[in-house]
Design a protein around this nucleic acid. Structure first.
Lengths: 350, 350
DNA sequence: CTATATATTTATAACGTTATAAATCCGGGG
DNA sequence: CCCCGGATTTATAACGTTATAAATATATAG
């Protein structure tokens, strides 16, 4: 069926209407130089025969791909981080001319490769990526090439660029205050690897809140959010046998927090009685985890949607200063009832 | 930088070598009519100046997109199902000419829309999709259009087509035998919605094994794997108050199983003592869940990789009868030690 | 009714690639 | 020295689109 030959093109419409191909093209683009009556007639015919412009031909002619690329980091794999992101991006792009293409990479750390590939082959009109670093080389390269992008996370480069970020300092502060309110007196913070920007925001928020509240704290150097489950498990076991062990943990990763809970459970310690935990929640998972755990929500799908919307506006030429958004932490503390999925604000930046 | 004008094209190479554009094109395609010496020279120059063929121009000329599309179902969101799939697909395609493009949809049930879109706009050379139904209209449409695809899941259509599926009947049998070995005598199976093909395989495997082992069983009609956490939680609570409640559950969904565990925990019932559960595990999550739960592993990333490889071979013209693969269930029972991530067979079909 | 401005339509060319058919080169037989 | 055939290279056209410039139709002023 539907062989190449019977797909309608501009030429098909031109033959039907008796107009020139050029006229048809401009009529479909709603060019004001074409008579209104002609435009309407052409558009009607196009609709009737199911005409769809050929993306490849358009790209070849205009240099625009109408594609937005999301650089997928394999570390985002577990728990649907990137799926939520993709779902948000898709929502943002569904009523635009843009397609979403996933460009994955496989390196341990973020790498320039996928960005270089996109720049060299011009496979997209704009890029979104995550796991941003303070001195991120991807940001530098893209800015140098004047290529539109929005990063998930901020940088320290002194270059202004479009971003969507989560208020990790606010999250850390909120978490500390919650633990203090529960009577915890020595708090540990499990950080992401140091190279990521959100390491610093988490740490600063945590340290400031700990100081304000006059509690002891520690920043374990042996482990981080990318550590293996076994390492996290072993660390807490070891730490609980040392002098002055923590009685509360702030953990910005769902899966890491499960390892913490497993270690507590295997030693007979009870969350909510002997120990407390505040986790950064990015899925609905923790609604079902027992014992219940205090959580603060980060809406990844919303982040994806914002990233998509801001990128479209960036491509359209808006200045980057108008394209920066910080997401608010949303507390979901465990004293709320089962199944409460509080209205997760659909805050707007537009 | 790198403006349109300074991207090398065939013309650039033609100017450098003094050959005609046509000759350069054929030399890069290694056509035997071009002198070996010429081919090598052209290929060397191409490498030196970093020539990359323009995908849009190729597509326009040849009709081939060099794109494979994965139809993303929003129901696969949680727990990285689709991310694992994407990661496997990417691995399969990374050394081929194909790009991976995600085509998402938002309907409740699988829908024809994304497939129709791909067929109409010829945005891909082949398609992969999941959540296959016994009478799947997508399979029909694609076969009618003679368009290459591989489904994740089988059909009952009597049309032979390429697929990758998981042996859900084997999973159910394995799960029942495990529960019986633990002394359970009344088993419940939580099924996916009836419209999916794997509903039947799970049910048949479960019923056969239950009959062979002479245990009682039930197939709750009120809930399924797509039910909300609250509904699953409420169902088990209700069921435990009725006469002859189940003492073992087989659950083919990780998140659903968490709701089951939450309901047990909230009533003081202990997994491993009063009750047992076998879950189908598709992530590393259950390694960290406490109490430990018996699991049988399904390797989604491997499924993605197989889907990609089979689709490439399908596009190349191999008959569908050679492009069918059934994945084996891999037991991961809870008596193994913490952190054991048993060698997950990298079985091959090729 | 002509000249001129304005509205509308059209021809031409080009984006980068490759299929087809035609042209050129070269060595050897007559 | 000419011609033939195989090896090698090249010109031409086309895929579907749109920017540019040119052409035509229509309206308005004089």
């Amino acid at each position: 069926m539907a062989r190449r030959s019977d797909r309608p093109t501009l030429r098909t419409i031109a033959e039907i209407t008796g107009l020139a191909v050029t006229t048809v093209s401009r009529a479909l683009l709603d060019a004001p130089q074409i008579a209104l009556e002609t435009r309407q007639r052409v558009q009607r015919v196009a609709r009737e025969i199911g005409y769809q412009p050929d993306r490849a031909a358009r790209h070849l002619r205009t240099g625009r791909t109408n594609v937005i690329s999301f650089v997928l980091d394999p570390h985002d794999e577990l728990l649907g981080f990137s799926t939520s992101m993709i779902s948000g991006l898709t929502r943002a792009l569904r009523d635009t001319q843009y397609h979403l293409v996933i460009t994955p990479h496989f390196a341990e750390a973020p790498t320039l490769d996928p960005i270089e590939y996109i720049l060299r082959n011009r496979t997209a009109d704009g890029v979104v990526f995550s796991r941003t670093e303070p001195d991120d080389p991807r940001v530098k390269l893209l800015v140098e090439n004047d290529f539109p992008f929005v990063s998930h996370g901020r940088t320290d480069l002194g270059i202004e660029h479009a971003f969507v970020d989560y208020d990790n300092a606010g999250f850390a502060r909120m978490a500390v205050e919650r633990l203090v309110a529960k009577g915890r007196r020595r708090l540990a913070l499990i950080l992401p690897p140091q190279r990521f920007t959100f390491h610093r925001y988490l740490r600063d928020g945590f340290l400031a809140a700990a100081a304000e509240n006059g509690v002891e704290w520690e920043l374990p150097a042996e482990i981080n959010l990318d550590s293996s489950a076994a390492d996290l498990y072993a660390w807490l076991g070891w730490r609980l046998e040392q002098p002055a062990p923590p009685d509360g943990v702030v953990c910005a990763g769902e899966v890491s927090a499960l390892s913490i809970m497993a270690a507590l459970s295997d030693r007979g310690l009870k969350v909510g009685e002997d120990f407390d935990l505040v986790v950064k929640q990015t899925s609905q998972l923790y609604d079902e985890v027992r014992p219940r755990v205090d959580a603060v929500y980060e809406d990844i799908a919303e982040a994806g949607e914002l990233l998509g919307r801001l990128l479209v506006r960036r491509i359209a030429g808006e200045p980057v200063s108008a394209l920066q958004h910080l997401q608010e932490p949303i507390p979901r503390f465990a004293d709320r009832s089962h199944g409460t999925r509080a209205a997760v604000g659909a805050r707007q930046s537009a």
